[in-house]
Every structure is written in C-alpha cells, then in structure tokens.
Design a protein around this nucleic acid. Structure first.
Lengths: 147, 147
DNA sequence: TCATATTAAATTGTATATAATTTAATTGTA
DNA sequence: TACAATTAAATTATATACAATTTAATATGA
C-alpha cells in the first residue's frame, strides 16, 4: 500500500472536513458579524464570564498570536472588555459585556441549523466526537510530557 | 442541555483536532522545507503527474486564492512546473519535476512517524476515517445540488 | 459573426494560525 | 535586596484560507 497517497491519509480528511464544516457556519455567523473563531471565543465566555488570555487559549487551542488581534476586534464590537489584572499586570482579563451576553440569544438556533446539514446519525456523531476528543486530549497530555 | 457550550459542539473538536494533528507534521516537514499544504499538494502530484489548478483544488478542497501563491512557491523550489495548456490558455497545468519525484523518497517515513503519535487503534482509525469521508463526500454532493 | 455568457486563474481584502522574538511584570533565590 | 529565571501578552514574519472581484480566454447562440 502506498502510504503517501492522499486517500490513505487520516489527517487529510480531518483537515478538509474541519474546513468544510467551519465553512457551513459562515453564512449564519455573517448575519451577526462574527467569524467562526470569534464565535467559539464568545462560547467560552458565555460559560465563564472572566478569563485571562492564556486560559482562553488553552480552551480554544489558540495562542496569543491569534487571540490578541481577535480579542481587540471583539472589544471593538462591544462584546468583551480587556482589562489588566491589578494583582498581576501580566494577565489580561477578558470579560463579557452585557452586549456580549445578549449575543447568545442571536446564536441560539445556530447549532440546530448546523446539525441539520451534518449527515450523521446520533450514534455516528457521538462516535466521531469521542474519537476526536481521544486524539485531542492525548495530545494535551503528550504536550505536558515535553515540558 | 446548553447547545451553545463548547463541549457540546461537534465542530470544535474537529477544528481543534485538525490543527493539532497538522501541527505534528511541522517538525517532520520542516526538514524538507515543506508546509503541510505544500505536502498534500505534492502528494496529489505524486499520484497524477499533470493536473490543472481547478482539479487540484477539487482534490484538496482549496481554491485558486490559496493555490496560486502556494504553487508559485513549489515552482520556485523546483518541485513543479507551471505551464499554460496550449489548447485552452485558461488552464494552468501543474506538472511534477524530477526533483519533485525525488522528494517522495524523503517523505517515505512521514506517515509512519505520524501514525506513531496517533493514539487510536486500527479499528478506531478506520471508523474515524469513514465518518470523516461520510461528512466530506456528502458536502461535495450538497455543493453540486446548489449549482 | 459578434456580443454575451461562462470558465479558469489571478488578485484583493480580511481573518486566521503558528513559530519565534520581544516586552513587561513577577518570582525565586543567592 | 539585587538579579536571573519565568511568565503572559504582544509583536513580527510567514503561510494559509476564503469570499469577492478582475482578467483573459473560450464557448454559445441570436
């Protein structure tokens, strides 16, 4: 078997699928002027109202190089505040504004709409979910090993 | 259940996992001065030596906006040639060079090395592969529907 | 045939991503 | 307490991604 054939790769469908599914969000998110990355950032903040950039990055698998400009945009849109932690000025605390909380309502039907165009049964979705997290969480562990 | 919680999303682990796995390729690909996207592009050309940009894009789920600059870089590195189809000058034919063919040898052990840090059994990998392609191929069909 | 439609790349503009470096603040320790 | 080490963000440089537009070539049809 030729291990260097595109169809024999596991990573390629992962990479392509990720992009295609994220693309499905674009028309829905465009209505509320959010990108996908901004959307998942808001999702974290709907759950936990205050958070520094580092923790946010750990949750989202993103670093400050991506988050710094993205958070400035979300601040400009009025959904978040960026304030330094007075106890430790190195930490930038991201906190959600009322307008940011409000935004959640406008997003309420997005998951259902996306689900509607995912051609997997409930069981298949669960299997996929579990396999992806098995991969993801193992990476996190491995990452720590190398510290 | 809160459908707007990050942990209840299927797309997010897909998105995060894709990035994390692609990241595993970086140190291996750095040795041969390729990016992941350049690597999968070469993979297509190892299989089919001549191809226009459109077909390449369909295989890779990428458009000319991404491919044009990428292909110019691969040409500069000497792995491909970019020539217009004399029958139809709109088509840019990408063809692999000898140096591009040679490159395949240097990549021979990459799949095994990547496989070594994927914590899934053979069965799990197959399941994941199939679910991802089910999603991907359905999208392709849906895409055609909307034409 | 000739104007119009279509097609394939290229270009433009915006937004990620990530590695590597820099800056500023804090910690740990001799 | 100084001062080196560490830490958190920000910055820089490079490379995708993709929507939308433009350009050039080809196909189509009145």
């Amino acid at each position: 078997m030729d291990t260097l054939k595109l169809e024999n790769q596991l990573c390629f469908p992962l990479y392509a699928c990720s992009k295609e599914v994220v693309k499905k969000y674009h028309p829905l998110l465009k209505k509320i002027d959010l990108t996908y990355t901004q959307y998942i950032t808001m999702m974290v903040l709907w759950e936990q109202k205050d958070m520094n950039v580092k923790s946010l990055g750990e949750k989202l698998y993103l670093d400050s190089g991506t988050l710094t400009p993205l958070l400035k945009k979300l601040e400009k849109k009025g959904y978040i505040r960026r304030t330094r932690n007075t106890k430790d000025e190195r930490n930038l605390i991201i906190s959600i504004t009322n307008k940011g909380e409000e935004l959640k309502k406008a997003c309420e039907n997005i998951p259902k709409q996306i689900g509607g165009c995912i051609p997997l049964s409930k069981e298949e979705s669960i299997t996929l979910y579990q396999l992806l997290y098995k991969l993801l969480l193992n990476d996190k562990k491995e990452g720590k090993k190398n510290v």
